[in-house]
Design a protein around this nucleic acid. Structure first.
Lengths: 234, 234
DNA sequence: ACAGATAGGATTGTCGACAATTTTATCTTG
DNA sequence: CAAGATAAAATTGTCGACAATCCTATCTGT
């Protein structure tokens, strides 16, 4: 499964839940194109469920900010916009900076060593591949890194806000960008881990904020280098 | 209407929307007590709507984090917990700090003068009342202040995340606290406005973070002074 | 008496049908 | 031909009924 389950790693016990996970995957993978209107009768017949269950699933997608709904008009898959992506990076800078500060204080030793092995593995996979394959797991490894620190903050609401409300959008946008593979980002990760090991919250926050800011700039550069066709294609 | 409409100031065009606003008000005012289980048949008959519409409204309440749902079991009004409130303050520190930084850059002049009059009015109402009445608008004025700055950040997603996902919870908890009325907070507001006028984003962020942190400490102190009965009462 | 099994009642999940609204296609008029 | 009104078609919102699941009270055996 190519998607980091994150907070949505529960067993889908109900039809609407299963449907939600299916649709979420379809949206993130681009099966359902960005900006497309969702036709309730059409999708319901495709998935072989009633419109009621479908509407419940759409509600959940709305929570993840993957679709927007307007009364009496319908639901649309969110649209790709560079400005919105930049907005998200600004929010991530603030929230993940705080997460890093808290993680420096609250992370357990096992969590820390898990994070270290994670970064080491990522480093290895970078060294072994000159140019990474398109489906290498460097992207997921990056998300794992951030997820790990957020979890280490021990702030439950921070975790759910980031994972439920923001990270699906991050995945949505990332899927539509050419794959990033920055050794600079790798080094930034290592610096953050060192600060966490020293339990230096102030420094961890500063480094995380710098890292998110730098990632935003790198994404912006890549986006501006892409042709309009590449942008619309996804 | 005693509730700051914030992002929910749209015209309720559908039954589920109207119901959502009604229930939201009922929860915030304490009509529906914290932690209580929501009985779908009961509420549906009380409000004279079908269970389907009610379920849609409950979904929206879940988005605002005012109720939690578990499959095949049901929905409950969120419960009051001091730790959760502290978590929220930590998130607010990060997000509103960023909002202040951005507002220093992006706020328009009309927005700035509106903010100034708002603070001035608040200051007057404080000078005229030795001890504020329980239903004075100092609490709403405080939220107005924060809302104004978030809006001035011109980061649309930051606005919706704070207003939709967090501020209803802030109101929920605030309703259940003895009214806060701090001249210290007032002075902190003034300092922030001055930084915004100077367009000093760095300073605005620092001051806002200090302000939220101090508010958190004041809330904690008040909470620890309250008796268990006062806490459970609401 | 108490722990676990069991049946009854109540609650939630799911569905199909109908009503209200929006969208589309057609027709009229300048 | 274009612009606006009008009717038909499609889509969304709402409802009540049935199925599946959970909760509760009773029963049984040790």
């Amino acid at each position: 499964m190519p998607f980091h389950p994150a907070c949505h790693s529960y067993e889908p016990v109900t039809i609407a839940d299963r449907l939600f996970l299916d649709l979420r995957r379809a949206i993130l993978e681009g099966e359902l194109p960005a900006g497309k209107k969702i036709s309730e009768p059409e999708l319901a017949s495709i998935y072989g469920v009633s419109r009621g269950s479908l509407r419940e699933a759409i509600s959940k997608l709305e929570n993840c900010n993957l679709v927007t709904r307007r009364p009496n008009i319908g639901a649309r898959i969110v649209n790709f916009s560079i400005d919105q992506l930049m907005e998200i990076y600004q929010i991530r800078e603030a929230m993940e900076g705080m997460a890093a500060r808290l993680a420096a204080k609250n992370m357990t030793e096992p969590e820390l060593s898990h994070l270290k092995t994670l970064v080491a593995r990522h480093k290895d996979s970078m060294a072994n591949l000159e140019r990474p394959a398109k489906n290498d797991y460097s992207q997921d490894a990056d998300l794992d890194f951030h997820f790990c620190i957020i979890q280490g903050s021990k702030n439950q609401r921070l975790l759910t806000m980031l994972c439920q409300d923001l990270y699906d959008l991050v995945r949505f946008y990332r899927m539509r960008l050419s794959p990033a593979f920055s050794s600079t980002a790798m080094q930034e990760h290592e610096l953050i881990v060192q600060a966490l090991e020293r339990r230096d919250g102030e420094m961890a926050e500063l480094l995380m904020r710098y890292h998110v800011r730098a990632s935003r700039d790198r994404a912006k550069q890549r986006l501006e280098a892409m042709t309009p066709e590449e942008l619309g294609n996804h």
